[in-house]
Nucleic acid binder design. Structure first.
Lengths: 121, 121
DNA sequence: TTATCATTTGAGCATCTGTTCAGGAGTTCG
DNA sequence: CGAACTCCTGAACAGATGCTCAAATGATAA
């Protein structure tokens, strides 16, 4: 089998001392909504292409990114703003160009793992 | 139609010994679209709550799942159908009840990693 | 059989989303 | 200065999305 042993839990909504590890696994409705927001941002073809281009290249300016997708530069800019506001990508200015990169290692792992799911799942 | 405009990004197409790993990292536009479809399905508060409930409990019937969210049982059923069709969850019938579970270990890892991103990212 | 339970399906609809268009802001250089 | 370049913002609109309602299916029990 695999890593995750099936935890058949039908727990009451109480927290005893022994439930530390279990409690860490519980995701509240609010957390789930925040997680959905993260997934929603990854869940668009344009944005996904931009993110995987960044995963591959490390850092790209907007012009480079517009060449990876088939929408206008304006659409790319809108997409990048959403990703930047959500903390999924980060940017730095260099002259008139602005370079984008994936914000943190979690995002990189997420994209990487998802690609594995697609290819070997 | 044939929208396969090339992934002709910066690096030249040289594949030496170490190039195999590099090649595996390249995600085509079509793959990115498939990945976006996966993320899109996770990117809804109702569906995310259902999935994290399944991650926690292992297996739940529809009635149990309706109690984890604040929408009608009909909405839950619609949500589950999307997830089932996409291969994100699997189901088995037991009497008149139908039990749902996460389809594979990749999905579990994806949900787990995302939760870590939210809490420690 | 009929009744009831558990879940699904289809339709209708208000809301949300991603796009393009038009214009604006910031930067470099002649 | 002004022109060229890179990127961003706001508005408007077609299309997608997720919800509820009404009805239907499949399974158990009386």
């Amino acid at each position: 089998m695999d890593v995750a042993t099936a935890p058949d839990i039908h727990p009451p909504m109480e927290f005893d001392e022994a439930g530390a590890e279990t409690r860490d696994r519980i995701v509240t409705a609010e957390e789930a909504t925040q997680l959905a927001e993260l997934f929603r941002l990854l869940g668009d073809p344009t944005r996904a292409q931009l993110l995987y281009a960044l995963l591959e290249a490390g850092e790209l300016c907007v012009y480079d990114l517009t060449e990876t997708v088939e929408v206008s530069d304006t659409a790319v800019s809108h997409a990048l703003r959403l990703l930047r506001t959500a903390g999924i990508v980060a940017s730095r200015r260099a002259g008139r160009m602005i370079y984008y990169r994936l914000a943190d290692v979690h995002v990189r792992m997420l994209l990487d793992l998802s690609r594995e799911h697609l290819r070997h799942g």
